[in-house]
Design a protein around this nucleic acid. Structure first.
Lengths: 153, 153
DNA sequence: TTGATATCATTTGCATACGAATGAATTTGC
DNA sequence: GCAAATTCATTCGTATGCAAATGATATCAA
């Protein structure tokens, strides 16, 4: 810390300016930490699947067969990311791929019976994960938080 | 969709159970999307630094020289992650490394003059990024959101 | 109809993120 | 004072996440 910095602080204190920047108060930093905590809770309950992999299976279970690109849109992943996720699910036999009959650009993705079994088994655990993630909040706070978070996302 | 599934749905509808699982309502999924949006806003304002890199510089600016490990704790990164971040900042001349004189395990990290210049220039932009991230909320909502988010993180 | 655009998927490169294993150095406990 | 436990840093492997470039196909528009 140089003498100039100390002088600057004095001057700004006199002017009543807030010069401090506290990383730990910034929404981006706290958002990153909250996300990290959620991922850790997820991993503690569902060890053999990542949140993005689970999201892909859950969405396919919800809407049925769709193109890789469309699936990516629905679960908020760009094309490069969704490809990797689907590749790994395919390698594990949880999804299967086929070509779109009419539009030859599209790659259709669907659950295999094993994938359907897996997601049906995991959804109850996912509800627990959501509960545990929100556990520091009261029910009312959790509702408020989800409403505001959705406005941000 | 098999006949058994349809039967299951009828039974559950009669019992008033909620069987649907909507990914887009789960806190983890929305948290991931909110984080993605923040990172995009960050990149639009600060193109030459990532949020983790910025976090490292901002924390060093705040507390001065510290060990790589301690820095990681303060900015919520594990040892493997912080090493990569610091390596890249070092390669760009924004931080410098030195050995701890007494405890030979520790690697001290500090801002270079260029790093100090950079973070002083960037902090005002970071304030803008925070504002833009919270822009969908009113001031009161933003305060509530930050309070609840901090409880979760 | 055909030339310009747009869409879908892939690949490459870079940057987190974290578990697990390893080795060096320090601290603790007895 | 010494063995056990802990801490610090590094490395490896795997998995997102995204920008940019590319190629194939489809759609639009003059």
């Amino acid at each position: 810390m140089s003498g100039e910095d100390n002088l600057l602080r004095l001057v700004e204190a006199e002017e009543g300016e807030e010069n401090d920047y506290h990383l730990q108060d910034q929404v981006g930093f706290i958002l990153r930490k909250a996300h990290q905590r959620h991922v850790a809770i997820f991993a503690a309950h569902i060890a053999d699947l990542t949140p993005p992999q689970f999201a892909a299976l859950a969405k396919l279970y919800d809407i049925g067969e769709t193109s890789q690109n469309q699936l990516g849109t629905l679960i908020a992943m760009d094309a490069a990311t969704v490809k990797g996720v689907i590749d790994r699910l395919k390698a594990r036999g949880l999804v299967e791929l086929s070509k779109h009959e009419i539009d030859k650009r599209r790659l259709l993705v669907n659950l295999t019976p094993e994938g359907r079994e897996a997601i049906e088994r995991l959804i109850p655990l996912a509800r627990t994960i959501t509960e545990e993630t929100l556990a520091p909040l009261t029910a009312k706070e959790a509702a408020t938080f989800l409403r505001l978070l959705a406005k941000l996302a």
